[in-house]
């Protein structure tokens, strides 16, 4: 039994760390969670759908629930999201609901649970993650009767951790390792990023125009792009040169 649980989490972690498409993580996440009684999941920033940064926020929600949740702007009052925003560690939807009642939450806030039940989402799991500053990110899983035992929650935390990291890496192009540029190539790239022409760079560095172009060709090849501007953008994104903006 323990071996099975380990194999399941371990296999999912492997997929997340090696995935080249978010679809691979999505399908594996759905299958992995199904065994734990989870039918809906969300991984990403805890904001309204229309405020999600490009590439962030992955859904595997019950049909209709995503639309209803977004239309009602539930994310603004959802006690489950509020729990994660307080960064208080993993919890269950049930615990979030109890706390909301205890603290006198609004009728609108508690209505989120009632509406979720209409989609067979009776309970679930929530955990905050590190976040993509300044947004607060989280992972939440729900279902009719999800496994919220101690072991079940531990597994969900691991699965949520790897799902979040896998999606984040894909969104940020994280697995792409910066190519090594020679000191001269770095100088040429920095001046190119400033908008200088090959002739101007040659004058600044006291080298010929053809030499500048040779360096630029090498830089483009190393980044696998077709223009020096694309290379400069990639270099700014991976921190090789300071962003010119």
């Amino acid at each position: 039994m323990r071996r099975n649980r380990f194999n399941k989490v371990s296999a999912f972690a492997e997929i997340c760390l090696k995935a080249t498409r978010s679809h691979d993580i999505k399908s594996s996440l759905t299958v992995t969670l199904r065994d734990a009684g989870v039918t809906s999941w969300y991984v990403g920033p805890l904001v309204h759908e229309s405020d999600l940064p490009v590439g962030l926020g992955q859904f595997g929600l019950a049909p209709g629930w995503q639309e209803q949740y977004a239309e009602a702007r539930h994310c603004e009052v959802d006690p489950v999201f509020l729990h994660a925003k307080r960064r208080e560690g993993p919890s269950t939807w049930g615990a979030c609901r109890e706390r909301a009642i205890r603290e006198g939450a609004s009728r609108r806030a508690l209505q989120v649970f009632d509406e979720a039940e209409e989609f067979d989402l009776l309970d679930g799991f929530i955990m905050p993650t590190l976040g993509t500053h300044p947004l607060v990110d989280g992972v939440t899983f729900g279902g009719l009767d999800p496994d919220l035992s101690t072991d079940g929650l531990l597994d969900m935390q691991m699965i949520g951790t790897y799902a979040y990291e896998g999606f984040r890496r894909l969104a940020e192009g994280f697995n792409r390792v910066s190519p090594y540029l020679t000191p001269r190539e770095l100088e040429v790239l920095r001046w190119s990023a400033e908008g200088k022409t090959a002739w101007e760079i040659g004058e600044i560095l006291h080298i010929g125009v053809r030499t500048v172009r040779t360096h630029q060709t090498s830089i483009k090849e190393k980044y696998g792009v077709s223009t020096i501007v694309q290379a400069a953008v990639r270099a700014a994104l991976d921190g090789t040169v300071a962003a010119p903006f």
Partner: peptide
């Protein structure tokens, strides 16, 4: 701690679990 594991992955480490997570001192560890 699972939180630290996430932080390590954020740093660039491909951390893979080699055991089942467990609660230690009220915090999940793996």
């Amino acid at each position: 701690g699972v939180d630290l594991l996430m932080k390590k992955m954020r740093c660039g480490l491909d951390a893979k679990p080699i055991g089942q997570p467990r609660m230690i001192d009220g915090e999940s560890h793996v």
